[in-house]
């Protein structure tokens, strides 16, 4: 498979992680990827992966904060 085609497929999949992203915008973005170089496509994919990882990181932070809060409640009322 051509690497540019592979990258476009990867980007399309990565965009699907963001369900609230307007479908028309997704299509517009995908249509324009046709004009991009391999390097640019890779850069775009990298940013999308980083966003996904940020979401995951924030989920862990939220759980940790909640855990600490529950612990503080237990301590407070002991």
């Amino acid at each position: 498979m051509d690497k540019i085609q592979f990258l476009k497929e990867e980007i399309e999949m990565a965009l699907n992680v963001f369900p609230a992203l307007d479908k028309a915008k997704k299509e517009e973005l995908m249509a324009q990827t046709g004009k991009l170089t391999e390097e640019n496509l890779l850069e775009l994919l990298t940013v999308l992966y980083r966003m996904r990882r940020d979401f995951i990181e924030a989920e862990y932070e939220t759980i940790k904060a909640n855990d600490e809060y529950i612990k503080s409640l237990n301590t407070k009322h002991e």
Binding site: V17, F18, K25
Partner: peptide, 10 residues
């Protein structure tokens, strides 16, 4: 293009 970012998060 990712104006729905916040909603996506939710």
């Amino acid at each position: 293009p990712i104006a729905g970012g916040v909603n996506a998060w939710q």
